[in-house]
Structure formats: C-alpha cells, structure tokens
C-alpha cells in the first residue's frame, strides 16, 4: 500500500499541496491527473521522499521518513518528469547505473533485458545523449524496470512511481509503455503514474486521483471520476465523456477551450 495522510507541501512561499490524502493499492495502476501546475509532480515527489512535507507517507506499511535510501530503492523505482545526464554514458550504462546496489555479474544481463522490454535493445551501446527525447524517456523507464526487477518479492509488492511516462512517446510506444505498467500491476506490483492523456488513463488505470490547485478534487475508480462534469470542472474546458466502442471504457472527447463557450 501507498498511504499518504494530510500531506502539505510548501515550496518557497507557495503552498503547493494542502491536506492531500492519497491511496494506492498493489495490483492496481493508480493515475494522478490534473491540469498543469495542479501539484501532480509535487505529490509524486512527496510520495517518493524527495521533498520536505508535513503529514505522513507510508509505503508497504512503513513510514518512508524512517527508511534509508537503499531500503527505499529496493522497494520502488522512480521515473522523473525530466532527466538530464552529465557525462556521455551509453544507454546500457545508464540502465546499469540503476543497479547501483550490486547484484554483481547479473548487471549487464538484467540491464539488456530491461532495454529490450522498452524496445531499445539495439541501441544499447549508443551514447544516451545522442538518443531522441522519446528514446531517452524509454531508457529511463528501462533503468527503473531494471532497478525494481520484479513486481512482487518475498517482503511485499514493488512499486513504480512514474511521472508522465508517455509524455514524449509516439502512439505505439505509449501503448507499449502503458502495457508494461499494466502488466506490472497485474502481476501484483503497484504503479502510481502521473498522466495527462485522459483516454490512455481510462484504458489502463484502475483508479484516478484528480488534483486541482493542490487539492484532491476527486479520487476513486476510473468510471466514478471520469464524468463529464468532474473532468470539465477540473480542467476548466468543455469536453464530453462517452464510452469507447470496443472495450467500453470511458472516452473523452474535447469540445471547446472554455467552459463559458456553451
């Protein structure tokens, strides 16, 4: 379980999150949605212990503030919204860096497997900095997958925290990466993903936490949160929620930029 209670985050003089409660269960893909600046990244960074916060965050029943970095690293991997690399490492080396805690010998093999999962096995020896934006994002995902290794271990489920994992990807790779996350959840792991694409979210997520200006506007199963009324209120634009033809999941059709344009 990920359980955050009464989270308040103040950055500089902004109170970016205020009194936020958040839950995510293993075996599920929990999406964090909301407009730009609503606090999605901030919430994710609080959940991963990157930011000072008031309130409590528990991961698998343990307060993350009491866990050392290596212990957290063995439970969860984190894909940040943006990453910059300082030296000319290759794609494979970047993934191997994620295995900093050892497992000597298996390093290269595990890293190559992770690269192959994001469809980049053939770019293993390319310098990371020479890859395209979407390719870099997939290498970073491979790094996270290699670090976490398996969805469930003896001492509990493993977690993926992903900040906009598909923001730079083409449609095929969006589906592929979301499927990787889905499979991870189906195998018993937990996934918390910040998402902008509502239709992908509707297809792949189990639950949604919808943020607006640092508060949780709505949280619950996809079908409950994804209503025309709630979404248009959250994003401040006109849209309509229908049902997609084949799988019958909610389908969001954008309409007009402002609510007033009725």
């Amino acid at each position: 379980m990920v359980t955050a209670t009464d989270l308040t985050v103040t950055l500089g003089r902004n109170t970016v999150l205020e009194g936020v409660d958040f839950h995510a269960a293993p075996g599920q893909l929990t999406a964090i949605c909301g407009p730009n600046g609503s606090g999605k990244t901030t919430l994710l960074r609080a959940l991963t212990g990157d930011l000072p916060y008031r309130g409590t965050v528990e991961l698998n029943g343990q307060d993350i503030a009491t866990l050392p970095a290596w212990a957290l690293a063995s439970i969860r991997g984190v894909l940040p919204q943006a990453s910059a690399l300082a030296f000319p490492f290759t794609a494979l080396e970047v993934v191997e860096i994620g295995l900093a805690r050892g497992r000597a010998g298996g390093d290269t093999r595990a890293a190559l497997q992770a690269l192959a999962r994001v469809d980049l096995g053939h770019y293993a020896s390319r310098p990371y900095q020479s890859l395209s934006g979407g390719e870099q994002q997939r290498v970073q995902l491979a790094r996270v997958l290699a670090q976490v290794a398996e969805p469930v271990a003896q001492d509990g489920p493993r977690w993926l925290f992903l900040d906009e994992p598909v923001s730079a990807l083409d449609i095929a790779h969006q589906l592929e990466v979301m499927q990787i996350a889905r499979d991870f959840a189906d195998a018993g792991g937990g996934v918390v993903a910040v998402m902008h694409d509502l239709n992908l979210t509707a297809m792949f997520a189990d639950r949604i936490a919808l943020l607006s200006r640092g508060h949780v506007l709505a949280a619950g199963p996809v079908a409950e949160v994804m209503t025309t009324d709630t979404l248009s209120r959250a994003y401040g634009c006109r849209l309509r929620v229908g049902a997609a033809p084949a799988p019958g999941t909610p389908f969001i059709l954008p309409h007009a930029a402002t609510l007033a344009a009725e």
Binding site: L72, A73, P80, L85, A86, E93, G98
Partner: peptide, 15 residues
C-alpha cells in the same frame, strides 16, 4: 555514476 543522473535519481537508486 549515479549522481550523473541528478541528485534526486541518485537518491532513488539508493545512494
């Protein structure tokens, strides 16, 4: 090596 990915990521990796 981990720090080359930034401080936050180095911490996520367990450094």
């Amino acid at each position: 090596n981990a720090l080359a990915l930034g401080e936050a990521t180095a911490a996520h990796i367990g450094i």
